[in-house]
Nucleic acid binder design. Structure first.
Lengths: 174, 174
DNA sequence: TAACAGCGTGCGTTATAACGCACAAACACT
DNA sequence: AGTGTTTGTGCGTTATAACGCACGCTGTTA
């Protein structure tokens, strides 16, 4: 828990690369000048809270996440998937939404390929803890927390919790 | 999810006051100059990530916590209404969605006026039982069940269950 | 090869974050 | 009263974050 504007720099660069943005494109999306972005990524300057906010909103992530320094071991185990899926609400053409309740056993994991462009998911963990890998980034959400992400890219759910994890998945198509 | 270095300022001042520190004492603990601390608290300057780190370590809190954008659950107590509202995900202009976790005490009820046309809500009851009155129709959903309705009309949540009811509310605007 | 576009970095300038110091107000003990 | 102490804020200076622009580099197309 120290000098981790290093991690901010890395995370920022990774986010940018994941989206396939150049520094110029990134500058347009975030409102931070291209030169500044380069300096921040190279750790030549310590960004202001104001610019951190610009970055977070521009990348559509929470500020806390941008600064969060948990290193994320990407270890997949291809054990037997033990997953229960219950459809709570069927797909409705008007709202373009469907809702699932999932229950994953300890160590279970599930992978989804990219949905069509514009689709996003909202997850809410009811009990346990869930790791979500979407693109190059990984997030952990605990019971009572929620997470939303762009589902137009491959994503995985992994239960590394010591017990079962129950969560809600709300999928919005476009 | 915008300009909330305001919250940082408040949180910082509260932290300092809670510990009973003066600006000078705070400066000694954090390594940030007294004048700067005052300016940050009065929102006259936007602190650098480096100084944010000094502050976090000085106060012995995590950086994420220092600028946590999640607002703490606010509790209403109008007459007999005892309702806790926790915003899990702030409104996101891209997905046009926000997510709340609500906890209603026995007998509590809450009313919402019509949202703008096209808005719909999805409710998921985690524990207890919830009655929803939307327009002329009334529905009861129990724990583990979900319900979706058009929110472009007045609607009410009522907890007639003999105990508290926890549920998730996912609001999609148009 | 030449011309061109897009990429990231370096440079000079401006805006401002951060500092040290001094000051006035509020409170304490003579 | 007077004296010392501690509170927070204002001022002048320095350090640096942020900007706009231009340059060299690389990949593509004519």
């Amino acid at each position: 828990m120290q000098n981790n504007h290093h991690t901010v720099a890395r995370r920022l660069k990774k986010l940018r690369k994941d989206k396939g943005w150049s520094l110029t494109a990134c500058a347009e999306h975030t409102g931070v000048s291209k030169a500044m972005l380069g300096q921040i990524e190279r750790q030549e300057s310590s960004p202001t809270l104001a610019t951190l906010w610009k970055l977070a909103t521009g990348f559509n992530v929470s500020l806390s996440w941008l600064l969060n320094d948990e290193q994320q071991p990407m270890t997949f185990d291809f054990a037997h998937e033990r997953i229960q899926v219950e459809r709570l609400l069927a797909f409705d053409p008007q709202t373009q939404q469907e809702v699932y309740k999932l229950c994953m056993a300890e160590g279970a994991q599930s992978h989804s390929d990219a949905h069509r462009r514009g689709t996003f998911e909202m997850l809410y963990v009811q009990s346990g803890r869930l790791d979500i890998v979407v693109g190059e980034t990984q997030v952990t959400i605990k019971a009572g927390e929620a997470y939303r992400f762009d589902a137009a890219q491959p994503h995985s759910y992994i239960n590394r919790y010591s017990g079962k994890t129950e969560f809600l998945a709300v999928i919005n198509y476009v």
